[in-house]
């Protein structure tokens, strides 16, 4: 039985969802996103009834509460509203459906999102393990932080969620992109530890710079592990991006691995998209 939580949804939306998913899911309705425990649910549903800005804020708060866990956030739109999807998606929504959409389509899309994420393939782990191990190692060595790899899931789009991201383009025998994304508090903590100073001394500029250095060191130290394999790459200079929702380009037909790491009670992600130019398999 899939647990689906509806936040502050009208009876119209509630009954529409019950109709679409009723048999296989247990639906509960709560009145405010504050009380939500995202990981207890397979899906979170919101209704876009308030002003768009309020909804975007609501979505991004829920997305942050998910701590990077891939819990689908579905927004149900009113019939009349014509806000482009992108605005919701860049706030952190997984999908936006409208009440006048064909029910058959909605049912299929929701069912698709309810399927649990697949496990990585062995051949995928072959190139992900070095990234995982080095991320743990880099934070241990430079910031004396114990980081635990939690899980990986795969995405078809390269989208960034969080407050700040360090991104590095890869070229050479393999091409792709690696990006680390953190929320502000953890970023500041990590940079302070890297520099061995009090957190109060870490300002935004240090964080911007430090996140760039972090992705540089993670990808640089991982690159060595691929020497002599089709996954070997060269580094470009790191790019630092603030804010959420940015979508990055990626090589056609490549999948994006989203690796989630836990640090005490917070988390960060490393997204890896690496595609050998030569055909491997």
């Amino acid at each position: 039985m899939n647990k689906i939580v509806l936040i502050d949804c009208s009876s119209e939306v509630t009954s529409a969802l019950a109709e679409l998913l009723g048999e296989q899911c247990s639906l509960s309705n709560i009145s405010s996103e504050d009380r939500i425990v995202p990981e207890e649910n397979r899906m979170i549903v919101l209704e876009a009834d308030a002003s768009p800005d309020a909804i975007y804020l609501k979505i991004s708060r829920i997305r942050a509460a998910c701590k990077f866990k891939d819990i689908p956030i579905i927004v149900i739109k009113r019939r009349e509203d014509r806000i482009p999807l992108e605005h919701f998606l860049s706030s952190g929504a997984t999908e936006v459906l409208s009440l006048d959409a064909p029910p058959g389509a909605c049912r299929q899309i929701l069912r698709g999102h309810l399927i649990p994420n697949r496990k990585p393939l062995e051949k995928e782990m072959a190139y992900l393990v070095p990234f995982i191990e080095n991320t743990v190692q880099v934070l241990k060595t430079t910031a004396s932080l114990e980081v635990a790899f939690r899980e990986v899931y795969f995405s078809n789009t390269f989208r960034i969620f969080g407050d700040i991201s360090g991104i590095i383009g890869l070229s050479g025998e393999s091409e792709g992109t690696v990006a680390v994304t953190l929320y502000w508090r953890l970023a500041r903590n990590i940079i302070a530890r890297m520099m061995n100073v009090q957190e109060e001394r870490i300002n935004a500029e240090y964080i911007h710079d430090g996140v760039g250095e972090l992705i540089n060191v993670i990808s640089g130290s991982t690159k060595k592990r691929f020497k002599g394999t089709p996954f070997h790459f060269e580094l470009s200079l790191p790019t630092v991006v603030v804010g959420s929702g940015h979508q990055l380009g990626h090589p056609e037909g490549s999948s994006i691995a989203v690796l989630i790491f836990d640090v005490d009670d917070s988390a960060f992600v490393l997204q890896v998209c690496l595609k050998p130019k030569k055909h491997l398999i």
């Binding site: 482009p84 299929q108 899309i109 698709g112 999102h113 994420n117 496990k119």
Partner: peptide
């Protein structure tokens, strides 16, 4: 910029998932 079709969005919902013995890659 047009929103993707419902079909497209349906296929996208399956990426990173598994149908029986088959894992959807891209």
């Amino acid at each position: 910029v047009r929103d993707p079709s419902y079909d497209q969005r349906f296929y996208h919902s399956l990426i990173g998932k598994q149908l029986d013995n088959y894992r959807a890659i891209t």
